[in-house]
């Protein structure tokens, strides 16, 4: 239920990324209204100030917008969501490559290894990121 956090990055940055992933994966739909800061903070198990900070970051990035009285909403702009999706993809790939480098693979070997894996498993299911 409570969100897990690692020690490397500020919690608000991790919350921001988590909400980005929820939006990209469709767990939060375009135009959907977000929970109030307090209940969203409760869901995440974090300080409401931290949640507010994360939401501010998302708003600056255009992924959510706020209406003075009604609260925060996910953007309806597919291009913004696509751009975030793209940057999260790049980040995921970098993580993969970093992991493979640590195991002693060169980028080319890593690429070949990925291809081999995909062939042996007949392609992995197109899965939503874990929420």
């Amino acid at each position: 239920m409570r969100w897990e956090f690692h020690g490397d990055a500020p919690i608000h940055a991790q919350v921001t990324e988590r909400i980005e992933r929820m939006i990209v994966s469709g767990a939060l739909k375009p135009g959907e209204r977000l929970p109030s800061v307090r209940s969203f903070a409760l869901e995440a198990g974090i300080n409401p100030n931290t949640m507010q900070k994360a939401l501010n970051e998302l708003e600056r990035g255009g992924l959510i917008y706020s209406q003075r009285t009604a609260g925060n909403f996910v953007t309806n702009d597919p291009q913004t969501i696509a751009a975030v999706r793209e940057s999260l993809a790049a980040q995921t790939i970098r993580q993969y490559l970093r992991g493979m480098t640590e195991l002693g693979y060169s980028p080319e070997e890593a690429e070949a290894r990925l291809r081999a894996q995909l062939q042996s498993e007949g392609g992995i299911e197109h899965a939503n990121p874990e929420l």
Partner: peptide, 11 residues
């Protein structure tokens, strides 16, 4: 808390 995580990269 943010400062600790940002500047020292640890929890």
């Amino acid at each position: 808390v943010d400062q600790i995580r940002e500047e020292m990269g640890k929890s």
